[in-house]
């Protein structure tokens, strides 16, 4: 379970990135946050991961307060970024094994690594290739493999599907559904309305740091999401976030 309580981040004392955000992601639920560039999506994820300290308020995973016990909290968090960057001189297997050990695993067998790599749809010949030869889609797959391997309670995804080809995107969503079946709490940011509609249990629309609207599964099906999104975003010129 992921939760934020009045989570606020102010950059440079005057740029309000996230304003009193309150949201909750239950286990086995996919929560998608929609927003323009600079709406505060990445800042929220960064605060979940304690990359940055919140100005006020707090974020929780389960009942662990992340800013207070970051190391403990990170045991229960997995992360896939928009552009998964890995150690380029290492093979897929080496990278996966390294991060698995970082996640707290003592011993990881090659079989297990291969199984996970296979599960995310990497071809067998790619297991022992260096990551610097990988395409973006392959790296995203490897990123989700790392998240799967970690077997964390909550998974945070920061625009993971941008730049993927249609097949890759679809495969990716399938993997997400599998994770959901396993009962993980999934928090994903995107500005891809159609993918959001396809997969989300709930959708939050973030505009300039404020959570303007939250939609349930039924509302997602009922309402015209595209119009709604434009409605909230219209009138606000997308701005570059100062410190992202």
């Amino acid at each position: 379970m992921l939760e934020t309580r009045d989570l606020t981040k102010v950059y440079n004392e005057n740029v309000l990135a996230v304003n009193k955000l309150n949201l909750k992601v239950e286990d086995g639920e996919i929560y998608v946050v929609l927003g323009a560039n600079g709406a505060g999506k990445s800042t929220t994820i960064s605060m979940f991961l304690n990359f940055i300290e919140p100005t006020s308020g707090t974020a929780l995973v389960g009942d662990i307060e992340i800013p207070k016990f970051p190391l403990e909290a990170k045991k229960h968090l997995a992360y896939v970024s928009e552009n998964v960057e890995l150690y380029r001189n290492f093979t897929a297997r080496q990278n996966l094994s390294f991060f698995a050990k970082l996640g707290g695993r003592k011993k990881v067998s090659n079989d297990e690594l291969d199984e996970t790599l296979g599960r995310v749809g990497l071809a067998e010949e790619a297991f022992t290739r260096r990551v610097k030869t990988f395409s973006k889609g392959m790296r995203q797959r490897l990123g989700i493999a790392i998240a799967i391997m970690k077997d964390a309670q909550a998974v945070l995804l920061d625009e993971p599907t941008s730049g993927l080809d249609p097949k890759g995107g679809a495969d990716f969503l399938n993997l997400l559904r599998q994770l959901k079946e396993e009962g993980k709490a999934i928090f994903m940011s995107t500005h891809d309305i159609f993918r959001a509609k396809e997969i989300a249990d709930r959708i939050g629309i973030l505009v300039q740091g404020n959570l303007e609207r939250e939609l349930t599964r039924e509302e997602i099906q009922r309402e015209n999401l595209e119009e709604l999104y434009l409605h909230y975003v219209a009138g606000y010129e997308p701005e570059e976030e100062a410190n992202e």
Partner: peptide, 14 residues
Amino acid sequence: ERGTLRLVLTHPVS
């Protein structure tokens, strides 16, 4: 710069 530091830091490593 490459972003691997972020990925490492998502793990429980001080």
